[in-house]
Simulated scan of single mutants.
Amino acid sequence: MTEYERSRTMPAQPEHVFDQAANIDQMDTWLPESLHLDAGELPAVTVHDNGTDRDTSALLRAQRDQMRIEWGTRDQGSYTGWLQVAGIGSGASEVTVHLSFFSDSHDPGERAVHDALDTSLQRLEQQVRLRVDNAAG
């Protein structure tokens, strides 16, 4: 099993960050650009990967009371992940994303995963900033 984790500080209350991250209709705005989510009967979702042009059955659960989103492949059980939002004071939050690959054949490699996580966290921060800025003014 291979695991990866990245974190990023965001200038918003944890509830605002979590609400943006967990919004199923807007997840495509911060997920890796090649991935697209189609929500079925939650927690069941389908993830389409433009890079491979494949659909994968997955599960997605958002737990607002814990400020946590968890996901993973449904049929083959080769991949899981979670996103955790934590308040760090002064109106800021830290967002951590963790990925676990249970098969080397599904692991795209450290550089690719770190790049995807960093980009996704940056895109999430942009969405959070847009929402906070629009709410403020």
Rank of each mutant, 00 (worst) to 15 (best):
A21K: 02
A22C: 03
A22R: 01
A22I: 01
A22T: 01
A22D: 06
I24D: 09
I24T: 10
D25V: 04
Q26L: 15
Q26D: 14
Q26T: 13
Q26W: 02
M27R: 00
T29R: 13
T29P: 01
L31D: 10
L31V: 12
L31G: 03
P32W: 12
E33Q: 11
E33F: 09
E33T: 15
S34K: 05
H36I: 12
L37N: 03
L37M: 11
L37F: 12
D38Y: 15
D38G: 03
D38L: 15
A39L: 03
A39Q: 03
A39I: 09
E41Q: 12
L42T: 15
L42Y: 02
P43E: 05
P43I: 04
P43V: 09
A44L: 15
V45D: 14
V45L: 08
T46G: 07
V47M: 13
V47G: 05
D49R: 05
D49C: 15
D49M: 11
G51R: 05
G51K: 01
T52I: 12
T52A: 13
D53G: 05
D53M: 05
D53R: 11
D55Q: 15
D55A: 03
T56W: 08
T56V: 14
A58I: 07
L60G: 09
A62S: 15
A62Y: 11
Q63H: 05
R64G: 09
R64D: 15
D65M: 01
D65S: 05
R68F: 02
R68T: 08
I69E: 02
I69Q: 05
W71F: 14
G72Q: 03
G72L: 01
G72W: 02
G72V: 04
T73H: 09
R74A: 06
D75V: 11
D75P: 11
Q76K: 13
Q76D: 15
G77E: 03
S78M: 11
G81K: 00
W82M: 07
W82F: 04
W82K: 04
L83S: 13
L83Y: 02
L83I: 11
A86I: 12
G87T: 03
G87Q: 04
G87P: 08
G87I: 06
I88Y: 06
G89K: 07
G89T: 10
G91V: 07
G91F: 08
A92T: 14
A92W: 03
S93R: 06
V95N: 09
V95G: 08
T96G: 07
V97K: 08
V97D: 13
F101L: 10
F101H: 08
F102H: 09
S103N: 12
S103T: 10
S103R: 12
D104A: 05
D104L: 00
D104R: 01
S105Y: 08
H106E: 14
H106M: 13
D107A: 09
D107L: 01
D107I: 08
P108V: 01
G109A: 03
G109Q: 00
G109M: 00
E110I: 02
R111P: 09
R111D: 12
A112K: 10
A112C: 00
A112F: 08
V113S: 00
V113Y: 01
H114I: 06
D115G: 11
L117C: 06
L117Y: 02
D118S: 10
T119Q: 06
L121Q: 04
L121W: 12
Q122E: 14
Q122A: 13
R123C: 04
E125M: 07
V128W: 00
V128S: 10
R129H: 07
L130W: 06
L130R: 15
V132F: 01
V132G: 00
